[in-house]
Design a protein around this nucleic acid. Structure first.
Lengths: 155, 155
DNA sequence: TCGATATCGTTATGATCATAACAATATCGG
DNA sequence: CCGATATTGTTATGATCATAACGATATCGA
């Protein structure tokens, strides 16, 4: 006679009994990113901007005009994805595009005056948001986290 | 006469000169998750499974049958999202669904035999994949990372 | 010069994601 | 008992994401 009902919650039961999803970095990273992203949307959502859109604007603010492809690499987005983001930002007149005269393959993206003004407004909000996300960590732990995450991301 | 052309790359120029996108946790977390997710797809992509799909199967393997809603919470997915994942897994006969007899609102999800067999095949691959992702870190650093990420994710 | 190769942007497909609104069912308090 | 409230699952909308295939343009080497 089996110990409990076959329909029971099956606390651990089968094989690989010591495996836990929580022990997989990918799962942890996904949840941590969800939290960070949620914090950002809570703060800048009223501007109707997503985290990738903000990152795109911020990168343009840092670097000035960039080709669409390079811009994508600098915000870690595939060509097909950065294209859509740029289209949405362009529709809102936050960025402007023009063709590179010397290399006809390239589309140069740059902030408009409105885009620049918006980024300058959002940067302090983003910094506060980062502080919120990092709130559970002490100062030295935050530094450590940056080091570890940076090495993970760069492979 | 201005020092350079107005159209120049604008290395730093404007306001908030010390702001860097790299200093924002969200951006770092997103890139690190991209890396981890990419590592997983490289290894289990031939099974036509994504990271969230694998997480769903793994959770069911750990816990046995769960309501769709609870399952979603346990893999950090919104109700609308876990629904789509379950539909795809169900279409491939990796999970089966039935209504809870005592609470007619609930849909109970459980692994099929094929689903169970697949998870048992994938678990060692996932563990190896996690090792790959963590390769840049030493043992004590990995432990530290888990601690920090866990606290971030839980808020 | 010219052909192979590489890069850039586009298109298409399919899978996450989050949010809001909604119907059906449970639960709880008076 | 029964109405207010909460929970579950669905639907719709819109924004990421990754991948593959493709034309256009650049670049490089023979």
């Amino acid at each position: 006679m089996p110990r409990t009902s076959t329909k029971a919650p099956a606390p651990a039961g089968r094989l690989a009994s010591d495996y836990r999803l929580e022990d997989q970095v990918g799962f942890l990273l996904r949840r941590a990113y969800q939290r960070a992203s949620s914090n950002l949307v809570d703060r800048i959502g009223s501007y109707d901007l997503t985290a990738p859109q903000y990152a795109t604007l911020a990168r343009l603010y840092e670097r000035g005009a960039l080709s669409q492809n390079l811009l994508g690499r600098l915000v870690a987005m595939e060509p097909a994805n950065i294209r859509d983001v740029v289209l949405r930002l362009k529709k809102r007149r936050l960025v402007a595009t023009r063709r590179d005269p010397t290399d006809k393959r390239l589309i140069l993206i740059d902030l408009t005056a409105a885009g620049t003004a918006l980024v300058e407004q959002l940067i302090p909000i983003e910094i506060a948001c980062t502080a919120t996300t990092l709130a559970p960590l002490k100062a030295n732990e935050r530094k450590q986290l940056y080091d570890l995450l940076g090495r993970l991301a760069d492979g």
